[in-house]
């Protein structure tokens, strides 16, 4: 089974977000970058599926050279090879077209992604790739089993989940509890150094959307602490006017 896992290189969830250059760029000062948490679930499930079914895992990122340590980490977790499409990820459309162009002739049985990236939170790249490749796309996926060439999935819906059966190949956007995050061990870290990391040129494509500027939300005022529930109910009623 050939699995492609697409990963993002994003600020750690505890990062304080700030911008520079007149609010047109993310301030990367002091920010630690990680594999997107949802992508990490996708990768963890891929490692388990490979253990059950044999095959190989390719991890892919559309990004500039700075993302390579993140790809190496994915190799340490259990991917066999890494590919970086050397381009600034302009927007979801642009990224999806890169991923589709790369995977078109590679015969992947399964393309796993995160449910959403935690920088732009679009939750769209998997659907776009599915449409570009003419494959079903399913997201957010909480459970994924492969049996006899078929995927058996559960997908989160508001208030519950639904169960889906679909033939391979397909694209899935993953979230917990699909698998437990895997922490690389020493052997993984050592072997990651020698696993192949290939850099490829992007296909020509424009982006239909572009960020003009960034902005931070206004600072939150101080909390009003009260001693008892009557005071709280009074505030909700007369201050917030919501009861």
């Amino acid at each position: 089974m050939k699995i492609l896992v697409c990963i993002t290189h994003v600020p750690d969830t505890t990062s304080k977000i700030q911008f520079t250059d007149n609010n047109t760029k993310l301030d990367k000062n002091g920010v630690q970058f990680i594999i997107g948490p949802y992508d990490d679930y996708a990768l963890a499930r891929a490692v388990e599926l490979k253990a059950e079914n044999n095959g190989s895992i390719t991890v892919l990122n559309v990004g500039e050279a700075e993302t390579e340590p993140t790809l190496r980490k994915a190799l340490a977790i259990g991917a066999d090879e890494a590919v970086r499409i050397n381009a600034f990820p302009k927007d979801a459309h642009f990224v999806a077209k890169q991923i589709a162009a790369f995977s078109k002739d590679n015969g992947y049985d399964l393309i796993l992604m995160g449910r959403e990236s935690i920088d732009f939170n679009g939750g769209m790249v998997h659907g776009m790739v599915g449409e570009l490749l003419g494959m079903p796309s399913i997201s957010p996926v909480m459970k994924l089993e492969i049996e006899g060439g078929k995927g058996k999935l559960s997908r989160e819906i508001e208030g519950g989940k639904e169960f889906i059966e679909v033939d391979l190949p397909f694209v899935a956007g993953c979230q917990e509890p699909i698998a437990e995050w895997k922490i690389p061990n020493m052997r993984g870290i050592m072997s990651a150094r020698t696993k192949p990391l290939t850099v490829k040129d992007p296909v020509e494509d424009s982006a239909p959307t572009a960020v003009k500027s960034y902005e931070l939300p206004p600072a939150k005022g101080a909390v009003k602490l009260v001693d008892n529930v009557d005071q709280l109910v009074d505030l909700l009623k007369n201050d917030a006017k919501i009861l």
Binding site: D119, F120, N121, T209, A210, V211, K212, Y214, E215
Partner: peptide
């Protein structure tokens, strides 16, 4: 964006 930590003014062409 950034799960509610920021906003982006985004142009659609």
């Amino acid at each position: 964006i950034f799960t509610g930590k920021a906003f982006a003014e985004t142009a659609i062409s």
